[in-house]
Design a protein around this nucleic acid. Structure first.
Length: 312
RNA sequence: GGUACCAUAGCUCAGUAGGUAGAGCAAUGGACUGAAAAUCCAUGUGUCCCUGGUUCGAUCCCGGGUGGUACCA
């Protein structure tokens, strides 16, 4: 697409399409990308991995309709990755793409990853695997209390505000203090960074009961396409973080012989419903989100285009 | 057709020596700056099947329905 204008001296416009799993984000994004002859960035922390496209409902070649997709299947489950790297990778890509595209589209369901691109994330050290092991040991031996006490010594201020029953929060806090020699509080500034491009956030909304129907149907579909085989292939690597994911955990329990297949499928559906709920909780508090009704693809696309034109 | 047992939350069930009830799961609301499809927190859910009787008071006791399960014909 020829670049026509640059609004407010910005490089371009990033349209973010967010929403719960199975809300039809992917299809909407592709239609919008066709309309503006542009490209798509995926903000989905599990579709990154090339070994698990089926179980993460990653877009297929056919669904992509020739639209270039970035950050889909670009990593192996054996590679380490995190939000901060994603932020930098996306910013770099956008800077390049905005030279030739006025509009870029980012679509996905990982709220933290979307926030990192839109607002930035504080510069903090990446986790050190050795340190993680040590922290895990402490958790196993002393539980969250042990971690909480440790954190209180290192950063009493963070200890006051942190969710003290959440081992991951506690571990991260301790980890940053130890790796930097400074309290986490001093470095966790949460300042919103200005971006050199315009951002329009859109949320795809569904009535709960209809979304639940879609989730159930899609789960059955994914299984019919051979999800179980995919799970069998990665089963030997089950300890990897990338596989700590809705669906795989349950299918592994079946492969272990702990659950019947029917049981595993029921659990997948339940856990997917819950995942969708958490995604909505995250999105609802973001006041910048413009909501569109996802129940019918036609109006949603028209609404989207209207929103985009309003900003351009 | 007969006999026995059962009927309580969306589901599986517990319970009330007669004073209108509670667990698990599901569900709902929320938090969340490097594990985020992760991790964590909070919260209820009710004609106790219907209908007569006894009783100050029945989800509980008694009678009659209705439905289910098992066994016998």
């Amino acid at each position: 697409m020829q670049k026509i204008l640059t609004p407010n001296n910005k490089q371009g416009l990033l349209v973010v399409i967010a929403g719960p799993t199975a809300s039809g984000k992917t299809s909407l994004a592709v239609q919008l990308a066709r309309h503006y002859r542009t490209e798509i960035i995926s903000a989905d922390s599990r579709q990154f991995f090339k070994e698990i496209p089926l179980g993460t409902a990653a877009p297929t070649e056919m669904e992509m309709q020739g639209i270039p997709h970035h950050f889909v299947g670009h990593l192996s489950i054996h590679e380490g990755y995190n939000v901060s790297k994603f932020e930098l990778d996306v910013l770099q890509l956008l800077e390049d793409k905005f030279k030739t595209h006025e509009v870029m589209i980012m679509v996905g369901g990982s709220g933290l990853y979307i926030d990192a691109v839109c607002n930035g994330i504080d510069l903090l050290p990446d986790p050190d695997p050795e340190m993680r092991n040590k922290l895990n040991d402490t958790f196993i031996k002393e539980g969250v209390m042990g971690l909480a006490n440790w954190l209180r010594e290192l950063d009493p201020e963070y200890y006051e505000v942190v969710d003290r029953s959440n081992r991951m929060r506690l571990m991260r806090g301790i980890e940053v203090c130890l790796q930097t020699g400074k309290p986490f509080t001093e470095q966790r500034l949460k300042t919103k960074r200005k971006r050199p491009f315009e951002i329009l956030k859109v949320g795809v909304e569904w009535p709960r009961d209809l979304l639940v129907d879609r989730i159930h149907q899609r789960t059955d579909q994914m299984l019919a396409l051979g999800w179980l085989d995919e799970a069998k292939r990665v089963y030997p690597n089950r300890q990897l973080n990338a596989l700590n994911t809705v669906g795989y955990k349950e299918l592994f329990a079946f492969l272990d012989g702990d659950w019947s297949l029917d049981m595993a499928i029921e659990k997948i559906k339940t856990n997917t419903r819950r995942y969708a709920k958490r995604q909505m909780t995250w999105l609802r508090r973001d006041m910048d989100v413009h909501w569109v009704d996802g129940t019918d693809a036609g109006p949603a696309l028209q609404d989207l285009i209207q929103l985009v034109e309003g900003v351009r």
